[in-house]
């Protein structure tokens, strides 16, 4: 299968079970939205796919284009084409936003010097994309996430996703903390990612992004399991009835 596939994923973090058998697929060119209440395991799913060390896979598999990613480091997964936009990215004092992007590009070009700009057109692209995302040009020279507003963080993560040019983009709540204009802008840009043929795993708590962005698939994660999966109608159901309703339906189905 091409794209990202998660099979029967069981995960523990700091002794606590957070995922209990998750199955899902993200195909290229599509947005697969994962919804769920707080603490349902949405971010854990994202971190596990990205290979964060503190998330221990107990069972199941994660595959990219049919090849297992288990056993690969975060760096190796990124180099294979995964990218994660964090919900609240950490501050990296001393490292500019442009520096990390240039380093990421140089790494992919096979350069040993990570800091020297090899292709000046990249810098132009950064400025252009920053503008399209509603960021001021000076943000490229600022220290990564240091003093960034909530909106700037979300946009900067997306900017990096575009520049790094991965196959699969995992977006962890890219809409939280954004105003209405921001939600619309970010939604449009996410569609821009799939237009480029990337697969998007979109993690979100609210359905409000779907006003501007029709997800191809929607799954609801509850207590570390996919409780419901389908098309955009699932998002509508979440919005109309809430997570408690979906949970009770799910429990009833399982008997």
């Amino acid at each position: 299968m091409s794209g990202l596939e998660v099979r029967n994923l069981h995960v523990r973090v700091a002794g606590k079970k957070v995922l209990r058998g998750v199955d899902l697929k993200v195909e290229y060119g599509e947005v697969h939205a994962i919804m769920g209440p707080n603490g349902s395991g949405k971010s854990s799913l994202a971190y596990t796919i990205m290979g964060r060390e503190t998330f221990e896979v107990e069972d199941g598999d994660i595959l990219l284009d049919g090849e297992s990613l288990l056993g690969l480091s975060t760096e190796e997964r990124a180099m294979k084409g995964l990218f994660m936009a964090l919900q609240d990215p950490p501050q990296i004092p001393g490292v500019r936003l442009s520096t990390i992007m240039i380093a990421a590009i140089n790494k992919r070009l096979g350069s040993t010097d990570l800091t020297r700009v090899r292709d000046p057109s990249i810098v132009k692209r950064m400025y252009k994309l920053a503008e399209e995302l509603g960021l001021t040009r000076d943000i490229l020279q600022r220290e990564l996430n240091v003093g960034f507003s909530g909106g700037e963080k979300k946009r900067s993560e997306l900017l990096q996703a575009f520049i790094v040019d991965p196959k699969i983009v995992i977006l962890d709540e890219p809409d939280s903390g954004l105003d209405i204009d921001g939600v619309r802008k970010v939604s449009e840009m996410i569609r821009g990612l799939t237009d480029q043929g990337k697969g998007v795993l979109l993690i979100t708590h609210y359905a409000r992004m779907f006003k501007y962005l029709d997800p191809d698939r929607v799954s609801v994660l509850i207590d570390g399991k996919i409780a419901l999966s389908g098309g955009p109608e699932v998002a509508k159901l979440v919005e109309d009835k809430g997570y408690a309703y979906i949970r009770s339906q799910y429990m009833a189905r399982r008997g």
Binding site: Y47, M50, R52, E53, S73, T74, E75, A78, M79, F83, M84, L86, P89, P90, I92, P93, G94, V95, T99, I100, A103, A104, K107, R108, L114, T115, Q160, V164
Partner: peptide
């Protein structure tokens, strides 16, 4: 984790920092 999720090794991340 954040730096390595961009495709950098831990040592490369440290050297940038």
């Amino acid at each position: 984790f954040y730096m390595t999720s961009r495709g950098l090794s831990e040592d490369e991340a440290k050297s940038l920092i």
